[in-house]
């Protein structure tokens, strides 16, 4: 399986008046064609910045300081702005968290979709309209004729998100970057949208990079996932392996903190402490200050990514020991 997207040693820093803030620190992952890849983490862990960096949309004063982002073999960081503009929307599309603020409130939905098509294709009006109807139908919107003539505020949150997905799909991209696409939606609507993403992936072989804070969402739709903490990937594995057999203490802590039926009436295991303010300045493991199984050497040097098995890597000394013992 060749990778569609390969992110290697990505470093992103923000220059602030108080000094440089290293928000993403040596992040690597790859996504295969037709795969849904989950990037999970809590607020401030750098997941949104990572996904914006793929489209080279990081707001100033943020900048990619090191690393490679290879899409179909080409390094996106070496492309000209002009070439990048052709890739955005065409080969890589993006879905944002809040559909209402991402759609233009003063244009009708049909017009907005038409603008996207005009930008990326040279279809005539008739063909373009047919394509719009087709794509709106494929995202399961009812009463398409009405939707086209509606302004965003006339649609419900779920319908708006479907329009966003339609907009992302319209130029037949290879990769969709979805940043918390269901967080603003109710659970029954979230279920519909996740169902739709899975279907589209299976039917068209599109890859999805799904950013979320919700382990439940990851469990439902993602083939493989990576856990991000304070700008570092701490664990990568096929989703069900990750959830059933987590190796990194942070992943274990996240799972233990979830309220689930079997833990009713018992204390939840919270992860004590808070995320470090400037993780870039930490010499050792970024999780050391909150880790229940911390050792001396965790403070001294950053653990490398150790392989539990070829598909499962984690950045923790405990695993290195476990592997060398075996």
């Amino acid at each position: 399986m060749s990778a569609l997207l390969e992110v290697e040693n990505l470093h992103i820093a923000f220059d602030t008046p108080r000094g440089t803030l290293q928000v993403v620190n040596d992040v690597s992952f790859s996504i295969a064609a037709g795969e849904i890849f989950g990037l999970v983490g809590e607020s401030g862990c750098g997941k949104s910045v990572t996904c914006l960096s793929i489209l080279r949309l990081i707001p100033k004063p943020g900048a990619i300081t090191k690393g490679q982002i290879k899409f179909q073999g080409d390094d996106l960081l070496k492309k000209s702005n002009r070439a990048m503009r052709r890739i955005r929307g065409n080969d890589i599309a993006m879905i944002f968290q809040d559909p209402f603020t991402s759609l233009n409130p003063v244009f009708k939905v049909g017009q907005q979709l038409l603008n996207v098509l005009k930008q990326h294709t040279d279809l005539n009006k008739q063909a373009a309209t047919a394509r719009i109807l087709d794509v709106l139908d494929s995202v399961g919107l009812p009463d398409i004729e009405r939707v086209i003539k509606s302004y965003p505020h006339e649609l419900s949150g779920g319908q708006q998100q479907r329009v966003m997905i339609a907009m992302a799909l319209i130029s037949e991209p290879r990769l969709i970057v979805a940043d918390e696409p269901t967080t603003a939606l109710d659970v029954t609507i979230q279920a519909q949208i996740l169902h739709l993403l899975r279907e589209l992936c299976d039917a068209h072989g599109i890859s999805v990079l799904l950013i979320t804070h919700d382990l439940g969402v990851v469990s439902e739709v993602c083939d493989r996932s990576a856990v991000l903490y304070a700008g570092k990937v701490v664990e990568t594995a096929p989703t069900q392996v990750l959830l059933a057999n987590p190796q990194h203490p942070y992943t274990q802590g996240l799972l233990a903190a979830l309220p689930i039926s079997s833990k009713r009436g018992t204390q939840l295991q919270a992860i004590e402490g808070t995320v470090p303010a400037n993780p870039g300045s930490i010499k050792g493991c970024v999780f050391a200050s909150r880790c229940p199984q911390v050792h001396e050497r965790c403070y001294d040097a950053q653990p490398a990514h150790y392989a539990v098995n070829p598909e499962h890597q984690t950045a923790c000394y405990l695993v290195e020991e476990g592997v060398s013992d075996a």
Partner: peptide, 24 residues
């Protein structure tokens, strides 16, 4: 339907179930 729709850890591929249709 609400119980069905909640994504839970360990319940793989529940997205294959037909979710509740329509909007509130």
């Amino acid at each position: 339907a609400l119980l069905q729709a909640v994504p839970r850890v360990g319940e793989q591929g529940k997205a294959s179930h037909e979710p509740l249709e329509g909007n509130v």
